[in-house]
Simulated assay, not measured.
Amino acid sequence: MGLRVTLVAAARSSSLLAERFDDDRPLDEAGWYEVQHAAPALLPLGAAELRYCSPTQRSRATGTALGYAPLAQPALRDCDMGRWRGLTLAEVAALEPAAVDAWLADARSAPHGGEPLLAFISRIGGWLDTRPDGDPAGGDVTVVAVAEPSVVRAALVYALRAAPATYWSVDVRPLSTVTLIGRPGAWHLHLDAPALR
């Protein structure tokens, strides 16, 4: 008995250069197109026993468009970026370059007045570790969760027990998936092989 948690990164709500901290915009036209294009591969994940999403508009819309009927989980919200909310990294770097440097260098710092990176990673890990892990039939419990790319990054750092600075080295594309298998406190990254004919 264990858990099989597949995380799906939400479709995009803006271009990469226009991404804003702690943003809650709906899917843009390109995001809707990408969901439709990716749906055949992602629809089977909707068979999971438990289906969740982060509370953002784009995560809910992605999960709904894929037919998951996900339950929004407040614990899966993006990192609280305090006074930087709604700004791009370039805008913040122009206004507060020393604060950005401190934030990138120290996972315990929160120069924006919001949530430190380390607390964000721990919060996402806490959510992972509190998923129900018992199936009366003795099999694995399957979970799918649609969340912001930052949430997927935090989950990977937590599950792999990597240094918090690893967060900055993980690139999560919209609609990409990753599966974690295990139980609370003991996670393993699972990469699926392509189907062979």
Results as ranks from 00 to 15, higher is better:
A154K: 07
T179F: 04
P40I: 08
T130S: 15
T166K: 14
L87S: 14
W127E: 00
D101E: 15
E96V: 07
L104T: 11
L27R: 05
D129C: 04
I181G: 01
A18P: 10
F21V: 13
V144W: 01
Q57F: 08
L27D: 00
T62E: 04
L76R: 00
E49N: 07
A10E: 13
S122A: 15
L180R: 03
A159K: 10
L156K: 03
L66D: 00
H188D: 10
L16I: 14
S14Y: 04
S109V: 01
A193F: 10
T64P: 02
L175V: 10
V141L: 11
A163C: 08
L7H: 00
D23T: 12
H112A: 15
S15M: 12
C53D: 04
V151H: 01
V178H: 02
E49G: 14
D129G: 02
R173F: 11
L42M: 09
W127F: 11
I124W: 02
Y68M: 06
A11I: 11
T56Y: 07
A72V: 05
G134M: 14
Y68E: 01
R153V: 04
A75P: 00
G125P: 09
G31E: 04
L104H: 11
P174N: 06
S15C: 12
R60Y: 10
W32F: 11
E115G: 13
R123Q: 05
V5P: 00
A41W: 10
S122F: 06
A39S: 13
P132H: 14
P116V: 03
E29K: 11
G138P: 07
L104R: 15
S109M: 02
A105L: 05
S122D: 15
L104P: 09
E96P: 03
M81W: 00
L89T: 14
A93C: 08
G46S: 05
G2P: 11
G113M: 03
A119E: 10
T6W: 05
V92D: 04
A93V: 08
Y52R: 01
A145I: 04
V178I: 14
A98P: 02
Y68R: 02
G185F: 00
A9I: 09
S54Y: 01
S176Y: 09
P74N: 04
A163I: 07
D24K: 02
D129N: 08
V157L: 12
L128Y: 01
G31Y: 02
T179R: 11
G46A: 05
M1F: 10
V143Q: 00
A48R: 06
T179E: 12
C53I: 07
T177I: 13
V151D: 01
A90K: 09
H190E: 13
D140C: 11
A137T: 14
A94Y: 10
D28K: 05
I124L: 07
R77K: 12
L160C: 10
S54E: 03
A10I: 12
G139T: 15
R173G: 11
L95I: 09
G126Y: 03
T179A: 08
C79E: 09
G86L: 03
D171V: 15
T62C: 07
P132Q: 14
